[in-house]
């Protein structure tokens, strides 16, 4: 089968329209919004702050805690029961691993940096939007960072490698979803997942194209951060 034209008419390596805003939640220490097509992620960062329960405290370093949550009305189809399940637990964990490498929490023993991610509407690519929002929010919180983190889902639909899958591509029966997060300056990858059948060559092609796409996301993030701190 040949995937001749994408469902939404985009080029195969074309990202969905993006927008980003930093400082959307005044009560948080840092916050940001990232939108890709119809997927929107809000992120708030609190801390470093006291960590409870106490047994989780680490006297050698502060820890990062991520909570990913879909709002009950944000799913494709039926209402999502609040409280989260195994899916959101796993995503929270991989997000934590994707973001931790850019942070230095050694100066904050026994404390925690909390990242809360909420999605008001979704159309695939939520974990990538979450990472893009979270890395801006961490910067907004004034934390020491080695780099930003940019993420996008690459994938395969029929015979084509595509970038930034939407819901219909993501749930295509002959398709593969391959989300990637990378550090734009070193090119290193901090999140990699995949589901669906694919060859090794195609994986290489997908990751290479995802890297190119991440450069564009990096520009969007930088511009949003500059806009936040521009002199009035």
């Amino acid at each position: 089968m040949t995937y001749a034209k994408r469902f939404d008419g985009r080029g195969f390596e074309e990202l969905r329209p993006m927008s980003a805003k930093v400082g959307i939640i005044p009560r948080a220490d840092g916050s940001a919004m990232f939108q890709a097509g119809k997927t929107i992620a809000y992120c708030a960062v609190f801390g470093p702050r006291d960590l409870h329960p106490k047994f989780m405290q680490n006297p050698e370093t502060g820890i990062l805690r991520v909570n990913y949550n879909m709002m009950p009305f944000s799913g494709h189809g039926e209402r999502v029961r609040p409280g989260g399940g195994r899916r959101s637990k796993e995503i929270s964990m991989v997000l934590q691993n994707a973001l931790l490498p850019v942070l230095n929490l050694k100066d904050y023993p026994n404390s925690v940096v909390d990242i809360f991610i909420e999605l008001p509407q979704t159309d695939a690519g939520t974990r990538c939007a979450a990472i893009n929002a979270a890395s801006m929010a961490l910067a907004d919180a004034g934390l020491e960072m080695k780099d930003l983190v940019c993420a996008v889902a690459a994938g395969r639909v029929e015979d084509k490698i595509v970038i930034d899958l939407n819901y219909y591509e993501d749930s295509h029966e002959d398709g593969t979803d391959l989300p990637v997060a990378m550090l734009p300056n070193s090119g290193k990858i901090t999140l990699l997942q995949m589901d669906g059948e694919i060859t090794r060559e195609q994986i290489k092609e997908a990751i290479t194209k995802a890297k190119e796409a991440c450069k564009k996301i990096y520009e969007v993030q930088k511009n949003a951060l500059k806009a936040r701190f521009a002199k009035v």
């Binding site: 009950p72 009305f73 944000s74 209402r79 008001p120 159309d123």
Partner: peptide, 26 residues
């Protein structure tokens, strides 16, 4: 219309306070 996934949605701001409400119909 702040959430395309919901059948109805709205955002209300009163000063700095911000609340979203979404309606799902089944």
């Amino acid at each position: 219309g702040v959430s395309a996934s919901a059948e109805g949605s709205a955002r209300v701001r009163i000063g700095g306070t911000e609340v979203l409400a979404g309606v799902k119909l089944d």
